[in-house]
Design a protein around this nucleic acid. Structure first.
Lengths: 151, 151
DNA sequence: GCAATCCTTTCGATAATCGAAAGATATGTT
DNA sequence: AACATATCTTTCGATTATCGAAAGGATTGC
């Protein structure tokens, strides 16, 4: 019999859920390995892409400014990040990964990312683009509904 | 010029990262709406699929048994879950969502899930299956590397 | 029946986060 | 130029969540 669309949709949903949980479990393991909490890890995650001001970190992590300050202190004490004054606005403080911070995170995430990319070899470029399109649709839907969650 | 494979892989990677963050932000919003923390939300997430013993909840959430007890208390006080004695093992306590708990979570996640499924209409069944296959590979890779994270 | 094991809860202590306010810098207006 | 307003980060006290260790019941195996 022909495979039903509903079945394909449902199974894709559970596959995504499973993957989400797997990533969550991985992040937990990394957090334990580094002695850091979930918020700290999220902070490192966004800082990998470049320096950010303390306030931007606050909104990126969803933490209050006060908590963000102690979070930066914690990471700075372990030598993972460092503060530098902003060249454009002297009120701001830029937070950036130290070389050690980059190395530590790359040691933990790098091998998995590399192997994940190799696993994509069995997919055509067209397929990869199609999946990216699907993920972008989902991201848009999720963002839109987040804005509608009663606060 | 022909689109390079490397570019397709990289963009898929960032799309996945973006989606992960979007989901995380959504969960945060739901947590605030319900007055619950991340751990509480993860607890509800796994309980949606069926009742679980307190110990199994402990391992599923990564929390210590002590924290799990207070977590269950918190959710029970808000009427989202309830405890029932296990019929097979009288040492265990089964935790399950109350009807109100199911309704509250469905109110928040349901509309997004529904719209997400509708958004899949523009994809063929073959594409959906292909996407599922990719996610399953990624899940396997992530799980394997999690086991290798130094603890 | 007795010992060993497993599951859950209680207890005290530690650590993370919050809310409000202060201190410092920037921006806009007269 | 000077003043008022807005923005950014930090400090402070209090609340809350989580941990580690141990106790209290229940089950299994000998």
């Amino acid at each position: 019999m022909a495979r039903s669309r509903q079945a394909a949709v449902d199974e894709l949903g559970t596959a995504m859920q499973r993957y989400q949980r797997s990533v969550q479990a991985f992040d937990d393991a990394v957090g334990r390995a580094l002695g850091l909490g979930p918020a700290d890890l999220r902070c490192l995650d966004v800082l990998v892409e470049g320096p950010l001001s303390a306030g931007d970190l606050s909104t990126a992590t969803g933490l209050r400014p006060a908590a963000t300050t102690t979070l930066i202190d914690r990471l700075a004490d372990r030598g993972l990040v460092r503060r530098t004054p902003s060249p454009t606005d002297r009120r701001k403080v830029l937070v950036e990964l130290t070389p050690e911070g980059m190395q530590r995170t790359w040691e933990l995430y790098g091998p998995m990312v590399q192997e994940g990319q190799q696993a994509l070899a069995s997919f055509t470029i067209a397929e990869l683009d199609r999946m990216r399109a699907l993920l972008e649709v989902f991201t848009e839907v999720t963002d839109r509904h987040r804005a509608q969650v009663p606060s």
